[in-house]
Design a protein around this nucleic acid. Structure first.
Lengths: 151, 151
DNA sequence: CAGATGTAGTTGAATCTTCAATCTCATGGT
DNA sequence: ACCATGAGATTGAAGATTCAACTACATCTG
């Protein structure tokens, strides 16, 4: 007989603000990247991940995990970016099932082109409006959420 | 000559955790609602908004603003929910361009059915893993983001 | 090494979201 | 009253995401 532990009034209020704030950030960032690079925000994250990897190369599954993409989603995304010329796929010699995704020069160029505007937006919408303490708090809060989910 | 104000190392770390945590919450909630009610999480928010409105009725544009949906998105969503029998649309007498969305009994029933599981999930992934102070902090942080965006 | 099971990755169909175009009605200025 | 402009809402097409198969290869067990 599990009683539902409903949210208290203040909790509801926090939850609503959370939904509003996260959606706000997400849609603005998405819009900007779409406008400036014809690129959904999630694809941008893929490019960033690749750009930081050794040889700008990652196994598909690593990349999926790192960017918190489902395998399927990543496949579709990389296919799209491959046809745009930003990424190429190569075979994995040691595991013939495997595939590498490699960021091309063109992909890197796109990334470099949008990065400044992207950072500026993240800064102006998030970091500029929080105190340094709040930034720390946000880090802790997000850590707690991420850690808790690892079960 | 605006220099780019890149993110500092710690800021980058916070931003990554933020992206991870928010995506985690979003996808889990989405999955649960989809499984339990065949309902995307965003549609759930529409139903909640309607359920709390006087007469379970709202103007489309109000609803769009309240739920932070674009008009287009809301139109599609309501069309889908209307064909599922959860919502009906009626004309606005005072402004012939306008339309009302009204939650049906069936819609309310769906909402009642999923709400407990939804709340339980939000609680277990968010409120249960934060201290009361962190919940307050999160509320403040989200407020700051929302306020800043009102320009 | 045979068979079962598990892992890496892709594909297609269905659904959702966005954008731009469109339609209808309301409003303000002349 | 007329016209321009703007607001409320919908539509269709293009692209994105999910889910459930599915292919191909790897690994484990006996």
């Amino acid at each position: 007989m599990d009683e539902v532990r409903w949210l208290t009034g203040p909790e509801q209020e926090v939850w609503r603000r959370y939904l509003a704030a996260t959606r706000l950030l997400e849609t603005e960032i998405d819009r900007q990247l779409q406008r400036d690079a014809g690129l959904p925000a999630t694809y941008f994250e893929i490019l960033v991940a690749l750009s930081e990897a050794p040889d700008r190369t990652m196994r598909m599954s690593e990349l999926a995990e790192f960017a918190r993409f489902s395998r399927s989603r990543l496949s579709h995304a990389v296919a799209r970016m491959e046809s745009a010329g930003w990424v190429v796929r190569t075979e994995c010699p040691s595991d013939k099932r495997g595939a590498f995704a490699v960021l091309t020069e063109a992909g890197f160029a796109v990334l470099s082109g949008v990065a400044p505007g992207h950072v500026e937006l993240v800064r102006s919408m998030l970091f500029d409006v929080l105190t340094p303490e709040q930034v720390d708090q946000l880090g802790e809060i997000c850590s707690a959420i991420n850690e808790a989910a690892k079960n």
